[in-house]
Every structure is written in structure tokens, then in C-alpha cells.
Amino acid sequence: MARVAELQDYLFKFLIIGNASTGKTCILHQFLDNEFKHEGTHTIGAAFGSKVVTVSNKTVKLQIWDTAGQERFRSVTRSYYRGASGALLVYDISNRESYNDAINWLTEVRAAASPNIVIILCGNKNDLEDDRRQVTFLEGSRFAQEHDLMFLETSALTNENITESFEQCARIIISKINSGNIDPSRMYSGIQCNATTITAPHNENSSNNLKQKSAFNCAGCQT
């Protein structure tokens, strides 16, 4: 089948980080394919998917790395932090340990990624019954305020705030570009400008569509 060139205003490198079993892979599948997939096995290293969204009147391609949450893979997943412009930091509202560990993930990603990385804190699995909740909405909100993060509670099962999390993160990045707080031409900014993606005309946004070639006009932008 013939391949076509599609122009996007920006390409952003995104991460999904947090402890294992918080629903990171389910969040990615829900965002890409609009369906819930049970996590059968833990992610090893990182999984990848991409999707084109329209945010703030800009067409943005999100390249999303779903990183492994298990401790034995931490040295591997850290290698994906460099050049990330946005991240979803995910904890499980029914697992206090995953919430307590959020500060460690936050410290790591801020040390290794772009200094201007935009991070959305996601309290996932808010579809669960109240008697299973171990972390309140107020706790999540306070943590986000203390660490200059945006905060949303999400559900990969019901699709609540999944798309909003990614789009809100992209919207903030665009706002910071427009205000001059982020320079997309800076090395390892995680942002590429005027991206031309060569891809098949079908199934563009699927997590299965991983074989793509891109050309960019912003020579200083690297991921």
C-alpha cells in the first residue's frame, strides 16, 4: 500500500512512569486504541506507541514510552528519560506504596530528563470501590501542588481522564513554547518541530504501527 507524508507542527517525546501494576500499560492502550487491555505481564524495559492529537490549534505527534516499573529494570528505564518533554507519573489509588514511591520517580525523571519537562500526576484506578481506596484525592492534589505538577485521577478501565492527561500535558508544553519558557531547538528538549511523518494511510494511531520514518526541520531538536 502506498505511503503518505503527513505534516505535524510538533513531535513530543512522552514517558509513562511509576511503580509496576499501577496500570501504566493499560493507560497507554486506552489512549491509543480506546479499549481496556488487562496487563498480562510486566513491561520489560519499555513499550512504545504513538498518536497524533490536535491541541491548542496545533497538530502534535506524541511518541510515548511506557517504562517498566519493577526495580530490576530501573537502570534500563532511566535511559529513556533523556530528552523527554512530558510525562505521566502514575500511582494506584488502592496501593499506598505506589503513591509513596511517586517522589522517587519524580526525583529521578527531573534529574535525567529535560529541565523543563511537564509532568502530570495520575492517580489511576479511580473506578474502584471506595473501600479499596488507600490514597485520597486530597492527598494526590496536595502532592501535586507541593511539587508543581498537574493532577488528575484516572481510570484506564472506564477511560476517565486518560485522553485529558496526555492532551493537558501537551497543551502546557505548547503554552510554554509560546511564552518562551521552552526553547524547542535546545538539544534534548524532547520536542521536534515541523515533523513530516511517513506512514501508511491506515491505522495511524494504533500501538501496532511502530515502523515509521520522520524528517524534521528543527536541527537542534533531539530525543
Rank of each mutant, 00 (worst) to 15 (best):
M1A: 11
A2G: 10
V4K: 12
L7K: 14
Y10W: 14
L11F: 00
L11V: 00
F12E: 01
F14I: 02
F14G: 03
G18F: 10
A20M: 06
A20E: 07
A20I: 01
S21G: 10
T22F: 00
C26D: 03
I27K: 02
I27N: 02
L28G: 04
H29T: 04
H29K: 09
N34E: 13
K37D: 05
K37W: 02
H38N: 10
H38Q: 15
G40K: 11
G40Q: 11
T43S: 09
F48P: 07
G49I: 03
V52D: 02
S56L: 10
K58Q: 11
T59A: 08
T59L: 07
L62K: 02
I64G: 01
W65G: 09
D66L: 01
D66M: 01
G69R: 01
E71I: 08
R72E: 11
T77C: 07
A84D: 07
A87P: 01
L89I: 04
D92P: 09
E97P: 01
N100Q: 14
N100H: 12
N104Q: 12
L106W: 06
T107V: 06
R110E: 12
P115C: 01
P115T: 06
N116Q: 12
N116D: 15
I117S: 11
I117Q: 08
I119E: 06
I119N: 03
I119K: 03
L121K: 06
G123C: 02
G123I: 04
G123P: 10
K125L: 08
L128C: 12
D130N: 14
D131R: 15
R133Y: 03
R133Q: 05
Q134C: 12
V135F: 08
L138S: 15
E139N: 06
E139H: 05
R142F: 07
R142L: 15
A144T: 11
Q145C: 02
Q145S: 14
M150V: 06
M150Y: 09
T154Y: 05
S155D: 04
N159C: 14
N159D: 15
N159E: 13
E160N: 15
S165F: 10
F166G: 00
Q168M: 15
R171G: 13
S175R: 10
I177C: 02
N178I: 05
N178L: 10
S179A: 13
P184E: 07
P184T: 07
P184H: 00
R186H: 11
Q192M: 15
Q192G: 07
C193W: 03
T196I: 15
T196L: 11
T197K: 14
A200I: 07
P201T: 00
H202W: 10
E204D: 06
N209I: 02
L210F: 00
K211T: 04
K213G: 03
S214K: 15
F216N: 10
F216W: 04
G220C: 11
C221Y: 03
Q222V: 14
